[in-house]
Amino acid sequence: MRSQTRARSLRLIAFATAIAGVVVLLGLRSQVGQNGPVPTTQPVTVEYEYAAGQPSTWGVSIPPPEGHVAATVTAVELQGVTGLDVVGIQACDTTVGGCSLVNAPGWPPSGIATLQIEGLSIAPTGTGPVYQILIGVSRRADASIGSATAVKVTYAVGGTTYEVVEPWTLRIFAPGAMPAS
């Protein structure tokens, strides 16, 4: 009887320890740093006209990390999305075939070899290829303007996860609706 109680206590302690470990691990995983080595660039806004329901590509270059260590991209997402469907997010190597672009018709853009964005290794300046984020977007038919206000890039450096919210804005107008100046 006594040994049964002891065994039960040990099982309870082991279970509690395992739960605590999982909680700690989850806690560590959810800690995301805000001031990592990938810098925030100066704000930029891209505006163009495009038919509703038709996909187009918006491109922006990932700023290289400061320091000497590469960063690994784990996720990219648009923020402040209104009247817009995101149809895909990929990447391309700007040193291969000159894929660097501001915008292009269609998704994925024709003639460009795209890469999966997750797992991409971004090297510090001068130590590796420069990658561009290619974002496929489509303005919704019920929106005269489709827009996104920022791009959040989540990445890892040396086992630590960071995120940077880049001040990159996109606005897609209905044809003929964009102000000229």
Partner: peptide
């Protein structure tokens, strides 16, 4: 020397000064 292509026109690129 580093170009980024604008393939849809008209397009505004509004860049904040550095």
């Amino acid at each position: 020397p580093y170009p980024s292509a604008v393939n849809i026109v008209p397009t505004h690129i509004i860049k904040h000064t550095s």
